[in-house]
């Protein structure tokens, strides 16, 4: 099709534009549906902005109030970080263990795979209703079963020490999504790699550490980042299951923002809150990304590096 003369020129031109053509849908979507509202909310954060009535420009007062005059801001931040610290590693670990379990070539594994995935299919609203229904400390079914076993169940939703654990239990129920992502990746590892290792005398644990883990580091990165974001923005469960209680022990940052916007009707202040969290998550993500060059191995990049070295 191309004559030999103009091929290289055209090729580079096309190659310069081509990547942008591929990502064009997202760029359009970003400009139309995200950028505007985002800028708007940044502007809102500089205003005293009730849902109805006069809006008033107040500069950085919302941020000042947040940092200096609202103890709930710090409380919510701490609780949320605490939750993320428990939730993220636990969820990753459970997801990974389950993903490994369901790759076991044993009978009936398909059924278990479906069972483990099942809760991830349920909506957040229904999850909170189902668990709230079981967690009732006085007349709920969980504590009743525990009492049959001779254990006095905790006051799940009344005792502040237990409430955050309750949230962890209920939210870990939906671990299936992450499990499935790990599973898809693990399933993609060629069987020959294990076979070769097995011939070399590596046991299952050894194989897991030297083959499975390195190959799935890209998905680990994905799951770490998305679950950090999910944990820091958790709202549905605390809104519907605990309402932030008992004693504000589950008054997560997401709920703090939500209440400022929808209960106290302070849209400007809520925007300021949200922008702060946005920046925190952004910095965290960038940090994780920076660190990822040390522990995430992409096949495409590995190959490139090797080639580069060869050329030298």
């Amino acid at each position: 099709m191309f004559t030999k003369k103009n091929k290289p020129k055209k090729f580079t031109l096309v190659r310069k534009r081509v990547p942008f053509l591929f990502i064009l849908p997202w760029i359009i979507g970003f400009i139309v549906f995200t950028l505007g509202p985002l800028v708007f909310s940044l502007i809102m954060s500089l205003f005293d902005w009730p849902i109805a009535g006069e809006t008033k420009f107040i500069g950085f007062d919302n941020f000042k109030t947040m940092f200096t005059a609202d103890p709930q801001f710090y409380d919510s931040l701490v609780i949320t970080l605490k939750f993320a610290l428990i939730f993220v590693p636990l969820n990753l670990l459970v997801a990974l263990v389950l993903a490994l379990l369901i790759t076991q070539p044993i009978k009936g594994i398909k059924i278990f795979r479906t069972i483990f995935y099942l809760p991830a299919v349920v909506s957040g609203v229904a999850v909170s209703i189902i668990w709230g229904w079981m967690f009732n400390s006085e007349y709920g079914v969980l504590n009743y079963i525990l009492s049959l076993l001779g254990i006095e169940g905790p006051d799940w939703l009344i005792d502040p020490k237990w409430a955050i654990i309750t949230i962890v239990i209920a939210s870990a129920w939906g671990v299936g999504t992450m499990m499935l992502i790990f599973y898809t990746d693990i399933k993609g590892i060629p069987y020959e790699m294990y076979e070769a290792a097995s011939i070399d005398g590596a046991g299952p644990i050894r194989q897991f550490i030297s083959i499975t883990i390195p190959t799935i580091t890209p998905t680990i990165l994905f799951n770490v980042i998305t679950s950090v974001i999910a944990a820091l923005q958790q709202l549905t469960l605390v809104l519907l299951l605990t309402g932030g209680g008992p004693l504000k022990s589950t008054y997560f940052y997401g709920l703090f923002v939500y209440n400022n916007a929808f209960k106290h009707h302070e849209l400007g202040y809520a925007s300021a809150n949200a922008w702060f969290m946005f920046i925190i998550i952004l910095l965290l993500t960038m940090l994780i990304f920076k660190s990822s060059s040390a522990w995430v191995f992409y096949e495409a990049e590995v190959k490139k590096e090797r080639k580069g070295r060869k050329r030298k």
Partner: peptide, 20 residues
């Protein structure tokens, strides 16, 4: 009221919650 209500609610809870 919505702010005051939040504060009152927390205090009432402290009065009635078995752990406080």
């Amino acid at each position: 009221w919505s702010k005051l209500s939040d504060e009152l609610s927390l205090v009432f809870e402290q009065i009635f919650n078995p752990s406080t």
